[in-house]
Nucleic acid binder design. Structure first.
Length: 427
RNA sequence: GGAGAAAUGGCAGAGUGGUCGAUUGCGGCGGUCUUGAAAACCGUUGUCCGGGCGACUGGACCGGGGGUUCGAAUCCCUCUUUCUCCGCCA
């Protein structure tokens, strides 16, 4: 959520910047400004009447104390009209404030000036790439065939137990999952992140804080009986640690990392290009989250990008880093880098991480603020997060790129975690 | 799941209808003293929304929401959470 101050002070700049996101904000901005003006008028009136009521009550109080009963009764009878007036004022004030909030919430975050214009993923800008595209041997297969051949991931079993998009990992497949999670967590801790194991269901306030609610409830699994949501990403619980928190400037940046399963309904986003591990309802992900000082949040973003890039290099996967264009960047983000790995048998780039700076947009919803040493006033923090990394597509690329006629080679960095170097046919 | 108790500022803990945004202690910050530090002493110390260039000033907030009353931290209703006991249990 953008702050009302920003809109009040630079309405034209807001409208202009949002054009990069292909969002026409002019209508909302002018409505917000009207409502804001109305709100302040109403508050001034309401406060004045309230002040008068407070004074009268105090006077009645002292009359009662001094035993001037009759005077007090007279004063009481004269107060009802004021009360009626105040009630109406405060109701209008609530109404206008709520209306303003509802409008404000519809505005996306402003994109950073470096965000390129554009409509679709075609317009994203490749920042850099690394690794070498593998040459596959004749008979190389896509991962959905490999997982059957080596009996490591079972979609049919998942359908039996739960439904489509809930795979069962078996044997070396399960072990590989565990290895990747541990590898990612260990690398994160080496880079200064504190490990968090959060709840994987969250309440409405948390969903609102990070921006999933009120708009995207259709994308989350909802536990109706308790009104809780299964998390679509660890970003939600880990960022919400800092909801309604005032930090010291010296605490920043805060670096947290957490592994969780993630749950996404993915309503309406299925098709032939999402075969196998490319899109799931439940998947594992290690997420990094930073709470940063506004002056250095883009340094934090670069640091996160470097970290994620390091993981891909260590795994030996060919990757590219793209800066998302205005049309492809999310509602809440100011700047996003997507990381894609090349999956050789599919001949496709697969997104494995999305690393973003939300600036103060989430922090405003979260009321996550910091205070400079000795200062009285508080300022909104900047929040950032990134996948480091999401497992399924990493697994897809590892299986496809590292396949040999004898089996699938495990990258050297993972061998201490898996305890094996090769996934071969079950005998 | 059953029965009871409770929820107050960073923490502890007073306050049961009238200048209470709230006594006090601890912690924090500033100062005096000291070569420095500690101790002692003095002062200060919540958040949010308005008005004002500013000094300053109006309003809201005592777990959330609603109600009673001229007036609510205090009374009533409701929800949530915590604690104790019992039951169940990884």
């Amino acid at each position: 959520m953008l702050t009302i101050n920003l809109i009040r002070e630079q309405p034209d700049a807001v409208v202009e910047r949002l054009k990069i996101k292909n969002f026409d904000a002019a209508g909302i901005v002018s409505t917000v400004l009207d409502l804001d003006r109305r709100r302040r008028e109403l508050q001034a009136e309401n406060d004045a009447v309230q002040a008068e009521l407070n004074n009268l009550s105090r006077e009645i109080g002292s009359m009662m104390k001094e035993g001037r009963k009759n005077e007090a009764e007279t004063a009481k009878s004269g107060i009802s009209k004021l009360k009626e007036n105040q009630k109406q004022l405060s109701e209008s004030l609530d109404e206008v404030s709520r209306a303003m909030q509802d409008e404000l919430i519809r505005l996306p975050n402003l994109p950073h000036p470096l965000v390129p214009a554009g409509k679709t993923a075609e317009d994203n800008v490749t920042v850099r790439s690394g690794g070498t595209l593998p040459e596959l041997f004749d008979g190389a297969a896509p991962h959905w065939d490999l997982i059957k051949r080596y009996d490591i991931i079972d979609f049919d079993l998942g359908i039996k137990i739960t439904g489509a998009g809930f795979p069962v990992y078996k044997g070396k497949g399960a072990r590989l999952q565990r290895a990747l999670v541990n590898f990612f967590l260990d690398e994160g801790e080496k880079a200064g992140y504190r490990e968090i194991e959060p709840p994987i269901v969250v309440n409405e306030d948390s969903g609102f804080g990070t921006g999933q609610l009120p708009d995207k409830e259709g994308q989350m699994y909802h536990v109706g009986i308790d009104n809780l949501y299964l998390i679509p990403t660890a970003e939600v619980p880990i960022t919400n640690i800092y909801r309604d928190v005032i930090l010291d400037a010296s605490d920043l940046p805060i670096r947290n990392i957490g592994y969780t399963p993630c749950f996404r309904r993915e309503a309406g986003s299925w098709g032939s290009h999402v075969r196998g591990l490319n899109r799931l309802h439940q998947f594992d992900k290690v997420e990094i989250v930073q709470i940063a000082h506004p002056d250095s949040s883009y340094e934090a973003l670069e640091e996160m990008v470097t970290h994620v890039e390091g993981l891909l290099m260590k795994l030996g996967l060919p990757y590219r880093i793209v800066r998302l264009c205005g049309g492809d960047i999310s509602f809440t983000s100011a700047m996003t880098y997507d990381f894609e790995v090349f999956s050789a048998a599919q001949q496709r780039w697969l997104e494995v991480s999305s690393t973003s700076n939300f600036e103060a947009f989430q922090a405003n919803r979260l009321r996550c603020r910091y205070r400079e040493k000795g200062a009285k006033q508080t300022t909104l923090c900047h929040t950032l997060n990134g996948s480091a990394l999401a497992l399924p597509r990493i697994v897809a690329a590892l299986l496809e790129n590292n396949q040999t006629p004898d089996g699938i080679r495990i990258p050297a960095v993972l061998v201490p975690y898996t305890g094996f170097e090769l996934i071969s046919c079950p005998t």
